[in-house]
């Protein structure tokens, strides 16, 4: 059971100071010309006052767009591996929406199961997530269809739900959450025994995800994928804004005789993703690549890793330049007989 307390919004400034003196940098949503982006802040005064969803998720704190995997130096016939400069910095991410917090389970499944990815492990170990429940949603939101909810605690170390103008319910969920509360116990008061649900948005359930997972293998050869992806331009935006997309490319970059091996975000929407050197491509047309995106998230990952690779944040639909809408497409897939 989570420890439930209340904290005043006006106390957040004091809490942020304590977190900063504890050596953690704080990432929080900031309004940049209408785009809500995670940036480093020192005080809650910089936080965007009102937003439904951050424009981008905070995924790149745990899985940067481009990050160093190793560092090397070459000298004539010799190669020396050097100490990597990619070291995690203790970070607290404030204002993560419950859908995005939920995506950490997907990242953990991919990066920690089977082979443990130590680069990711170090980042997740030093990151604290303070979620903030959603009081509002839009037509793109569908967290409740994929197992989440606007007040879902999964993935957060502490979840705040705004009860009125100055009061947050603070659910202290993990040891990392407890450690934050312990920095300023005087700011966390009793009185948390309240019903948060009436303060959370009402996100209707739009489809049955178990039914979808069950039916997907059967529609693999259906022309529905072709119809849906005819307009897809393969830009990869859906992957880049997705908090649960984890695929990457590995590239070397050099400067003189020094170099780094980088891991960079990649997308199953790109033709090059699967292109063999011979020119053969197992997913040579866009419909096969679109099918891979849906199959991976809703069939393969549930089957192999016991997670749904989608958290219903709606970003892919909000940002798609050709207005592909994942909710509409899933609904249509479910109508294939």
């Amino acid at each position: 059971m989570a420890d439930k307390k209340i904290i005043r919004k006006s106390s957040l400034g004091e809490l942020f100071k304590k977190i900063r003196s504890d050596g953690k940098r704080i990432l929080a949503p900031v309004d940049r010309g209408g785009k809500i982006l995670f940036e480093y802040v020192d005080s809650p005064g910089s936080i965007a006052p009102d937003y439904i969803q951050t424009t981008l998720s905070a995924k790149d704190t745990l899985l940067p767009r481009c990050e160093e995997m190793l560092r090397f130096r070459t000298e004539q016939k010799s190669v020396y591996l050097e100490e990597s400069l990619n070291r995690p910095e203790p970070t607290l991410i404030f204002g993560v929406r419950p859908c995005d917090a939920r995506s950490i389970a997907v990242l953990n499944a991919v990066y920690l199961i089977n082979y443990t990815d130590d680069i990711y492990r170090q980042k997740i170990d030093t990151t604290t997530i303070v979620g903030v429940s959603c009081a509002k949603c839009d037509e793109y939101c569908f967290c409740t269809s994929v197992g989440g909810s606007p007040g879902d605690t999964a993935g957060s170390d502490m979840l705040l739900t705004q009860m009125d103008n100055d009061i947050y319910l603070a659910e202290i969920l993990t040891d990392k959450g407890k450690a934050i509360a312990a920095l300023a116990p005087e700011l966390f008061a009793e009185g948390g025994d309240v019903d948060k649900n009436k303060h959370c948005a009402d996100v209707p359930v739009r489809f049955d995800v178990k039914d979808l997972s069950k039916r997907l293998p059967g529609v693999f050869e259906d022309p529905v994928w072709i119809a849906q992806s005819l307009r897809c331009i393969g830009c990869g935006t859906c992957s880049y804004v997705c908090p649960a997309c984890t695929c990457f490319d590995i590239q070397d970059e050099t400067d003189g005789n020094r170099g780094v091996r980088l891991r960079c975000w990649d997308s199953c929407g790109f033709a090059q993703f699967t292109l063999h050197t011979s020119g053969h491509n197992p997913r040579e047309v866009q419909s096969q690549r679109w099918r891979q995106r849906i199959m991976h998230k809703f069939s393969y990952q549930p089957d192999q890793l016991d997670v749904i690779g989608c958290v219903g944040c709606g970003r892919c639909s909000r940002t798609c330049p050709v207005d592909m809408n994942i909710l509409q497409h899933i609904t249509d897939i479910l109508e294939v007989h």
Binding site: N114, F248, I250, H296
Partner: peptide
């Protein structure tokens, strides 16, 4: 086509 070799980079799948 592979990059990581250990089931993480996401491209060499054949079905699941």
């Amino acid at each position: 086509r592979m990059k990581c070799g250990i089931g993480k980079c996401g491209r060499c799948n054949v079905g699941k």
